[in-house]
Amino acid sequence: MIIPTSYYLLLSGILFSIGVVGVLTRRNAIVIFMSIELMLNAVNLTFVAFARQFQSLDGQIFVFFVMVVAAAEVAVGLALIVAIFRVKNSVYVDEINLMKW
């Protein structure tokens, strides 16, 4: 039995929505980053599902590039969080309002 592609799309939609809930409701900047990773992975799942649907490897190549961008984003983002923590002594996003005036 072959799983229909729409099942994978539905699963990916659920995971993406959970990631959105995490970004909108959490205060900890590190957990917000993890939720962004979850959303990127939900999109990767749709890429791989469509690669199977259309019998083409291009979707898997795109997953490769999304992983590259995610790795770069996490490295720079965590460096930013550490730098902010050194100044503000906090990682909670509502206490970091340097640019608000």
């Binding site: 072959i2 799309l9 199977r52 019998q55």
Partner: peptide
């Protein structure tokens, strides 16, 4: 997602 892609891949 419900609107399409129900056909299993060939």
């Amino acid at each position: 997602f419900k609107s399409g892609f129900d056909a299993p891949p060939s």
